[in-house]
């Protein structure tokens, strides 16, 4: 298993083990959707899905992912049909400069699935909490320097079909 699948295409692992997944996407595959914001796992701009789970691509060494399937922002649409959350970002004006957007959308897609699967979050231990607070907690790993948060949250909640608990 010396290969990695990215957006349904199989690739040989890079020869230098120091290559992070983020650098592999940029330098070897010319996939620039996952962004290098901080490169230290703090901003979430490089968020991708690894076997469906969201992770920071900047903190993954590519050899750690042998045999895994990665989906980046380039792989979430169905050919020319945008993913519903991509469309919701447009409809809700959920970005200004757009730098964090691909990470926000990948995180949002995963967050919606986590809500569907009823996976717990920190606010579930509060005496009272709202769906809005739950979504905010789940998206706290993605920073937006433009401060588009209200519209980002709106895009994610408006396309989330999970019933309120």
């Amino acid at each position: 298993m010396s290969s990695i699948t990215i957006n349904q295409q199989e690739y040989a692992l890079p020869s230098d083990p120091r290559t992070t997944l983020l650098d592999f996407l940029h330098q070897n595959l010319q996939l620039f959707g996952a962004r290098k914001g901080c490169d230290h796992g703090q901003c979430g701009a490089c968020t991708v899905l690894v076997d469906g789970e969201r992770m920071n691509a900047c903190l993954l060494l590519t050899f750690q992912l042998a045999g895994k399937a990665v989906v980046t922002i380039e792989g979430v649409a169905d050919n020319d049909d945008l993913h519903p959350l991509q469309q919701a970002f447009i409809d809700n004006d959920a970005f200004q400069c757009g730098f964090c957007t691909s990470g926000q959308i990948c995180a949002g897609i995963a967050a919606q699935r986590e809500l569907q699967e009823q996976r717990p979050s920190a606010v579930w231990f509060d005496a009272y909490y709202t769906r809005l607070e739950d979504v905010k907690e789940r998206l706290s790993g993605n920073l937006c320097r433009c401060g588009a948060y209200p519209h980002i949250i709106e895009a994610v909640t408006s396309t989330d079909s999970t019933p309120e608990a």
Partner: peptide, 16 residues
């Protein structure tokens, strides 16, 4: 344990 884990980091980091 659940309370402490979910109070730490982010989903992206906890997944890894």
């Amino acid at each position: 344990l659940a309370q402490a884990l979910l109070a730490g980091a982010t989903v992206q980091l906890r997944n890894r």
